[in-house]
């Protein structure tokens, strides 16, 4: 059974039909890269998967739960799905450690001592074990993004959604973030990424989903699809970004 199942999902922003019947299944442990031009609906699709955005028709089932924007449902979903954003979104008034400990202590009622241990663990994992007491504003963008990943990991999600998480970073900082993702993929974490990093999609990703005008235009094994695109739209897109 798939971990995430998207069935004929439609979404409108007013008159704008942004998702036009999306079907997508993601198995546990899969690394799926969603690519496409801006405005193709890829971020919207990702945001529908954890209830940040509502959809008007169809169904999304994640880890056996129906996804909706209802607060109670979003909170339940948060136990299974984590999300990392383009703009990091660390809480500026909390230290790195406090950022990570917040959800485990508040939501999972983990004891403070345990949450601290957990936070230190995930920080080591992203290579920032020495930043526990630091405030986010003192970190570089790449470091902030790795803290954001660690913060998600502390909730032990089954799937991690990444919304263009390297797009706001200086080029030289992108590598460190991708390395963390690569390590997570190797450990079997299910990753769904909206990304422009074609090399990463090809080398680390299992599958590529190319979205075009609100539809899944072409999808398949990452290496195959990127090496030999079947549709002119994808061919053109790859030509433009590589």
């Amino acid at each position: 059974m798939s971990l995430v199942s998207v069935r004929d999902v439609h979404k409108y922003f007013g008159d704008l039909h942004v998702l036009k019947g999306i079907d997508l299944d993601i198995k546990a442990g899969e690394v799926v890269s969603i690519i496409g031009r801006s405005g193709s609906g890829k971020s919207t699709l990702l945001r529908c998967m954890n209830g940040l955005e509502s959809y008007d028709q169809g169904a999304i089932i994640l880890d056996g739960m129906e996804v909706s924007t209802d607060e109670f449902q979003v909170r339940k979903l948060s136990q299974s799905v984590g999300m990392v954003f383009q703009s990091f979104n660390l809480f500026p008034h909390l230290t790195v450690g406090e950022n990570i400990m917040l959800a485990p202590t508040l939501i999972k009622k983990t004891s403070k001592a345990e949450a601290k241990k957990l936070a230190q663990e995930v920080l080591e994992k992203v290579g920032l074990g020495d930043k526990f007491g630091q405030y986010p504003e003192k970190l570089s963008g790449g470091q902030q993004q790795r803290v954001a990943i660690a913060r998600s990991l502390a909730m032990k999600p089954k799937v991690l959604l990444c919304d263009e998480i390297t797009s706001a970073l200086d080029p030289e900082l992108v590598g460190d973030v991708l390395k963390v993702l690569e390590q997570l993929a190797a450990e079997g974490m299910t990753l769904v990424l909206v990304t422009h990093e074609m090399n990463f999609a090809r080398d680390v990703g299992d599958r590529v989903v190319f979205m075009h005008q609100g539809k899944v235009h072409e999808t398949g094994d990452a290496k195959t699809v990127l090496a030999d695109p079947q549709t002119p739209e994808l061919r053109q897109f790859i030509g433009a970004v590589l």
Partner: peptide, 15 residues
């Protein structure tokens, strides 16, 4: 910033 509220929501915090 709206993103901070979204981040908190995805972490499971109540309103």
């Amino acid at each position: 910033p709206k993103g901070q509220i979204e981040a908190a929501r995805t972490l499971g915090l109540s309103s």
